[in-house]
Each structure stands twice: as structure tokens, then as C-alpha cells.
Design a protein around this nucleic acid. Structure first.
Lengths: 183, 183
DNA sequence: TGCGCGTGAGACATTTATGTCTCATCTGAG
DNA sequence: CTCAGATGAGACATAAATGTCTCACGCGCA
């Protein structure tokens, strides 16, 4: 049976987020394949990480497209974005923490474009009066990444139910922890 | 000149958060010492990571003590906590992502106690009517870790000014991104 | 049935990081 | 000044991960 490349990459990401020094052998076992097969798919550890980044980038771009960030209310677009990003959360969590990649310039450009699109969403929300303006789009973007990572880990470790993933992140990011008095 | 153990650990954390597979030699250079000296201080990579965890745990416990989480308004206590945690942020960022440590039981207990104290703060805020109750203390704690990590990275990479660290995290965690109408 | 393809298992050489050691140098205390 | 203590530089052996290869097995397909 041929190997499901994406499935291998996703399980690799899930493992490497938590044990970043894991062996190629451990990665293979986690994916349910042999080390030989893993090597046939990815020439080495570098190639594996590159592939992880490539897939992550592609999934994020795709999620951004589906979320239609420039339509409707910004808050709703953000909700949609988080929903679309959920399946890629573990992958994203790995890539955000593993910054060694920024040594290559090719990928850097990809992330920069991604950041720009998300920042544009927050900026649009600010200009529409939906979002507060004392938190910079750059920080909001960063915080989004961080919360997605935290959410992925919390779900992975069973501290938060998977069904609450989107709700928790959206509510915290948009509304914060403070209780409001009803208007 | 004798080596400043804490300084070595902090710079090691700053490096390892971003390049988790960094060599002992790279860690040593980042700390401005030789590999030999690094080895004299920490028997091996394991010992180094253990020491990182021990220091992180100690600094966090100390920060929690100084923040007096059970006094005054919960929101203010949270502000103080984030202020006290800022110097330990890069260390914390590394430890939160590196979950391999949870294999040892000793440390696990330390983190559990820490989590419990922070969760208690959020719970206290909920019971006092300050914090909303539809976000669990466990998730709020997780989110706090995530935001501190994001903040540390954003500052480290120059995307956010260091002086804004506390403000950005507190404001997002407490208030969220949505703009409020003035009461 | 027989063929072809991809896989798992494992042996093997090679590279790389690690851990240990020695020795020259520097620095601060007495 | 002199000496003890600690460091940096580098050689070295060891351990470990990596990359490559072979071969047998299973499975789909003609």
C-alpha cells in the first residue's frame, strides 16, 4: 500500500512539536512506517522539515483562501479562518516554534506573505472600527499563531476537548477573559 | 572569571527555542563560553535540559510568589504575574514547547503545582465575577503560556518592542481584540 | 498463476555529536 | 609577585544517528 505523504507529515509534526530531537526512526514509527520508507520519501531530516514547511505553507494559504478574509465582518472572517486552520494546527504549532527555517529565503517569503494577509485582516477590522487599535496587527497575528499552538497542544494532551478548539481560541482572541456587563 | 550559570541557561533557552536541534557547541558559543566549560557545568544535553527546567520552575514559582495571586482584584494580580514572568519568558517559551520532560515524574509534579496556582487565580476571578465563565481556567492558563511564548518570540525577532511586552499580553488576554463601546 | 511494485526488516559504512582529557593561558586573591 | 583556580583551545575515543544497500514478503493486477 502506497504511503500517504500528508499523513506521514502530519504525524511527524505532532511528534516533533513535543520532542523536537526525535530520531528519524521515532518519526517513522509514529507514522506507522519503516525508517527505510521514510527515507524513500524524504532524503533526510532536512528534507523532512522542508516538506513539513512546504505542506504547512500550502495548507495555510489554502485556509486563508477558503476563509475569504476580505469579505463581511472581520470578526466573522477571523472565526472562519480559525475554523479552516484547525486541521493544520499541529503542523502550524511545529513550524511557528521551529524558526531555524528562516535561514532559507524562499520559505521566508512564503511566511511573510502569509503574515501580511493575516495582518491585513486585523488592519481591516481596525479601520472598520471592529478591532481596537492599541494592539498592533503584527502582535495580533503573532498572538493568533500562539493561541493556535496552545490550542493544538491542549487538545493533544487532553486538557481541552477537541470540539472546543475553535470556540476557545476565537472567544479569547476576540473577547478576552474579562466578563462584560450586558449592554 | 567564573561562569554565570543562570546567564548560560537563559541564553541556551533563547537559542533552543528557535533551533531545538542546536549542538552543545552552538549552545556554548551562544552563551559566550567554550564547549569544555559548558560540559563542566552540565554533564550533557540531558543535564542541561534538566537544569533549564529546574531554573524555569524556580523562577516561575518565585514570580507567582511575588505576584500575590490571592490578593486584590484577579485582573490586577494577573497583570502583576505577567510583569514578574517577563524576564523568564524565553525560558518559559522553551519549556512549554519541549514536552519531552514530562517523562520524568518529579518535574511533572512541579508543573502541575504551577498550573494549579495559575488556574486558581482564574477560578478566583470567575467566582468574583471578574472573568467570564465560558472559558475554562485550564484553557486560560494554557493561553497565558502561549501568549507569553509568542510575546517572547516577537520581542526576540524584533516584531514587537520589548517595552510593549506586558501591555500586549495583558490587554489581549484580558480584553481581547474587539473594540468596546464606552459605557 | 505469475509479474511488478512498494514495503519492512535489518546489515553496513559513514558522518556527526558527544563525552573526556590535556595543556597553555588568564585572572584575582593573598 | 606568586600561586591556585578556572577557562579556552583542541585532540581524541566513543556513542549515536544518519544514509545506503540488499533481500524477502505481501498485495494488486494482468
Amino acid at each position: 500500500m502506497p504511503v500517504d505523504r500528508a499523513q506521514v507529515l502530519h504525524s511527524a509534526a505532532a511528534l516533533l512539536t513535543r520532542r523536537s530531537t526525535a530520531t528519524m526512526d521515532e518519526v517513522a514509527r509514529a507514522a506507522g512506517i519503516s525508517r527505510a520508507t521514510l527515507h524513500r520519501q524524504f532524503a533526510g531530516r532536512d528534507a523532512l522539515v522542508r516538506a513539513l514547511e512546504e505542506l504547512g505553507l500550502a495548507e495555510c494559504e489554502s485556509a486563508l483562501d477558503r476563509a475569504r478574509l476580505d469579505e463581511g465582518r472581520s470578526a466573522d472572517a477571523l472565526r472562519g479562518l480559525i475554523r479552516e486552520l484547525e486541521p493544520s494546527a499541529p503542523l502550524l504549532a511545529f513550524l511557528v516554534t521551529e524558526n531555524q527555517l528562516f535561514e532559507g529565503e524562499q520559505q521566508n517569503e512564503g511566511w511573510a506573505r502569509l503574515d501580511a494577509r493575516i495582518e491585513a485582516l486585523f488592519r481591516r477590522g481596525q479601520e472598520a472600527g471592529e478591532f481596537r487599535i492599541d494592539l498592533t496587527p503584527a502582535w495580533l497575528t503573532e498572538a493568533l499563531y500562539g493561541l493556535i499552538g496552545s490550542g493544538a497542544w491542549a487538545v493533544q494532551d487532553g486538557r481541552v476537548a477537541a470540539k472546543d478548539f475553535q470556540f476557545m481560541i476565537v472567544e479569547l482572541l476576540l473577547g478576552g477573559a474579562l466578563r462584560r456587563v450586558e449592554p
